[in-house]
Amino acid sequence: MRRDDYPRPVPDADSEPFWRYCHQSELRVQRCTACGVHRHHPRPRCPRCRSSSFEWARCRGTGLVYSFTICHPPVLPAFEERAPYNVVVVQLDEGPCMVSNVVDCDEPLYVGMPVEVCFRQIDEALTIPQFRPRVPVP
């Protein structure tokens, strides 16, 4: 469902690749090619070793719920119809944390819940990475 008031990222020099890869259903974050640390949000330098060399590393797409909330009104106009809805922080297996939503989930959320990425196309220009519960591989 297209909504004109849906909040759209205005990509900048740092963030443009992140959103472009999302739109291709690929979750990629910056990975420092000097020290190997992954980071998100995108930044021009590695906060650990200060190198400006990095690559857009494809993530496994798996992680754990680090924290969560259930949002009730007041919320952004584009989200009014779906309130209450969840917002989570997911810690990716690669290390960084990322704000998202958990979808296709019937059980109550909990910190530590294993999740995996899935992609929701908002419209022809925007796809956002969301997460669904993941059954751990035995």
Binding site: Y6, P7, R8, V10, V75, F79, M98, V99
Partner: peptide, 15 residues
Amino acid sequence: SSVSGPAQYHHPFGL
């Protein structure tokens, strides 16, 4: 509906 800076990583998820 146009969000830049850190908000671009939050608002599209309703945060």
